[in-house]
Amino acid sequence: MENMVNYDPSFAEEVFRDVDAGDEIKMCMNCGVCAGSCPLREHMDYPPRQIFGLIRAGKREEVLSSKAIMLCTSCYTCVVKCPRNIPVMDVMHGLAHYALKQGYVPRKDTASFGKEFWKQVYRLGRIDEKDLPRRVFFSGGLVEGIKAMLNFMDIGLRLMLHHRMKLLPERKIKGVKSLQKMLDKAEGLGKGGAAA
């Protein structure tokens, strides 16, 4: 048969070893509650359960280039519902970080948003509500940036009207150095998948 999948346990071993929370996949019993409860299921190319199945089958390419692993919005529904107490959300994030580190970019905008978000938290200890979107919008070029800005103008004006977005740049939090130390240490605790 042409597109027969050959089971190859080496990728599963790689995931168990190198991906944050990757070894939790072992305990999956394929009930599908995670997929059934995921609010983003319809936007995913593979639901979490199938991602786990693909890992077991050894389909490295499909897993690391799947959009699903980057779509997770950390709503925690799957974590709450999993009968086997698998932190499905952590696994998805772990896989996303691992994919980026391995040079896969399943969703460019999500990746760049994540990168900017992380940088800003690291630098300021908080998010600058106008600086972050600006950086994300213009990461794809000037024209894309202006288009995106016009798209979000309505929301931006209202945020300002309700004093939710300041005109001046955000300041660093107190003791941002200590926060950075903590974040550095946390990164060291992971399996090296977390992208700074």
Partner: peptide
């Protein structure tokens, strides 16, 4: 062994 993997929806082969 060739099997119909219900989760992947594909025929798989374990060698």
């Amino acid at each position: 062994v060739e099997a119909d993997d219900e989760l992947l929806g594909e025929r798989v082969k374990i060698e």
